[in-house]
């Protein structure tokens, strides 16, 4: 409870002349699932590598369980790197038992565990196949298995869904959820915002080498307008200090509530202005919208998906 599993403070990372991380601090608490978000190239992988001692930080403290990580403490770490890879010319079972043994399992239990895992992920019968004879999705499954061997206490997954089809993505998410239920602390880099909403307890958004937003999903959503009102209506929308019109089409609009006025008061305000309201729903701003707002603005280029937030400025 008290001591965070991951503690990063004042982290800075320079490569030659470029500063990738300027000043980053955050904690990951025991047992939580933590989403580590940011656009491509924002420095997520770099941060993870520095945390795991693969990169030497330019400055700052990066601790796992209260001390800098050393591979000697790695027996209960499950790390799925963004750059995937296994010993390609070896058999699936040999690779799995090798890593299992390096993580402290004995040969027999490593074999048993691997057989059960392969069975579970539809790779039963592939144990004696050379790794590079598997499809890349199958190789990913093997690597995920290696990652969760020996019941890791801390799972660090760098874009785990990369390269998985929807069925296997579901399987992967189930496996991650299981690990979480078993008490593992999970740090996950992902661009799948639905997964973030579904799985993560807390998140951090990395931008320009520092933390753009950090907290529970609710807290982050509140920071970016929090609640959104969707209306089907007739008549002009009156201006108000309580909301901002983020999307306006014929008979449809989205309003982002900018203070803590409750929804009923907003509805009354609209009707008092003489609008005809056919439907009125309130939702939280989606993580996807937040992501697009944060990173779409930054680039000054049109957001990759039709951004409802950005649309107002065009209108």
């Amino acid at each position: 409870m008290d001591e965070p599993v991951v503690h990063i403070s004042g982290f800075r990372m320079d490569f030659a002349d470029t500063t990738v991380i300027r000043d980053l601090s955050f904690d990951v608490r025991a047992g939580e699932t933590f989403g580590f978000l940011g656009s491509n190239g924002s420095g997520k992988t770099t941060t993870i590598r520095a945390l795991l001692g693969l990169y030497e930080p330019t400055a700052g403290v990066l601790h796992i369980n209260g001390r800098p990580f050393k591979p000697e403490h790695g027996s209960r770490l499950g790390y799925l790197p963004e750059e995937r890879g296994l010993y390609k010319k070896e058999k699936v079972m040999d690779v799995m038992t090798y890593f299992g043994r390096l993580k402290g399992m004995d040969r027999h239990s490593a074999r048993q565990w691997s057989l059960a895992y392969l069975d579970r992920v539809d790779l039963a019968g592939k144990a004696a196949i050379q790794v590079d004879k598997l499809s890349s999705g199958e190789q990913q499954k093997v690597q995920l298995g290696v990652t969760i061997m020996n019941r890791p206490e801390l799972l660090i997954l760098d874009e785990p869904t990369k390269g998985f089809d929807p069925v296997n993505r579901r399987l992967l998410m189930d496996i991650i959820a299981e690990q979480k239920n078993d008490g593992a602390t999970v740090v996950m880099v992902t661009h799948q915002m639905e997964e973030v909403e579904r799985l993560c307890d807390r998140i951090i958004l990395l931008k320009d080498g520092t933390s753009e937003a950090y907290g529970t999903i609710d807290e982050v959503q509140n920071k970016y307008g929090g609640r959104v009102v969707r209306i089907r209506h007739a008549g002009p929308i009156p201006p108000s200090p309580h909301y901002e019109v983020t999307l306006e089409e014929t008979n449809y609009a989205e309003l982002s509530i900018t203070d803590d006025t409750d929804e009923a008061a907003i509805l009354r305000e609209l009707m008092d202005a003489g609008m005809v309201i056919r439907s009125f729903t309130t939702t939280k701003i989606s993580m996807e919208d937040i992501f697009i707002r944060v990173y779409g603005e930054h680039n000054g280029s049109p957001a990759p998906a039709p951004g409802r937030v950005a649309a107002t400025r065009g209108a």
């Binding site: 790695g74 296994l86 290696v146």
Partner: peptide, 18 residues
Amino acid sequence: LEEKENRVTEMILTTLKP
């Protein structure tokens, strides 16, 4: 070299002292 070409280094180096 093989470890590099196989991209297996990161997993190895977080499990094992170089």
